[in-house]
């Protein structure tokens, strides 16, 4: 959460892309987050009153991008939802919602894609599809994927694994 700029550490520093996050104020942190960090939540966290297109366009609009909606349409097409642009989250399945969330996280072309138990609320087949999509998009864009998971097999697909036990780093490699 510190890495994603969502919380401040009690001590020490956190450097991301040359920025010490502990020295940024709240608004600067938000801007940094919007431009550099894409977050995929376990429970999707789509805004229920916005369509799929609007959800994906939101971070781009917040960043002041004039091509927000065209870019959002492209991202949704890239995750296979080109036909569901005007659908609300309640009209989408869990897997589709998570794909929208992934498109939203990737739309600003972030340096870091943080995924917190992205398949936790999905069945195994759907979850596998989402994981494949995450890795595919990460490879295509060259982003750094930070994946939080309890699934050892999933962790094994990553280049580097850091195990935490009781809030401390246990092993890494």
């Amino acid at each position: 959460m510190t890495l994603a700029g969502l919380e401040r550490p009690d001590a020490g520093s956190a450097h991301v892309d040359g920025h010490d996050l502990t020295k940024l104020d709240e608004d600067s942190l938000a801007r940094f987050r919007g431009e550099n960090i894409g977050i995929v939540f376990q429970s999707f966290q789509l805004i229920p009153t916005m369509t799929a297109l609007e959800n994906v366009a939101a971070p781009l609009e917040l960043a002041g991008r004039r091509d927000a909606f065209s870019r959002a349409a492209e991202e949704l097409a890239a995750v296979g939802l080109g036909e569901r642009l005007s659908h609300y989250p309640r009209q989408l399945s869990g897997g589709e919602q998570q794909r929208v969330a992934l498109a939203r996280a990737l739309a600003p072309d972030p340096l870091i894609l943080a995924a917190d138990e992205p398949t936790g609320n999905l069945d195994s087949d759907t979850g596998a599809g989402i994981i494949d999509l995450i890795f595919e998009q990460k490879n295509r864009r060259g982003s750094t994927l930070v994946l939080v998971t309890h699934d050892a097999s999933l962790a094994a697909r990553c280049d580097r694994v850091v195990r935490l036990r009781s809030g401390r780093i246990d092993t890494q490699g």
Binding site: D27, A30, R31, R33, Q45, P48, A58, P59, L62, P108
Partner: peptide, 16 residues
């Protein structure tokens, strides 16, 4: 509340 939190996660400042 959750929607506001998401907007912040997406880059919206608290004032926004």
């Amino acid at each position: 509340r959750a929607a506001f939190a998401v907007l912040k996660a997406l880059g919206a400042s608290a004032s926004r």
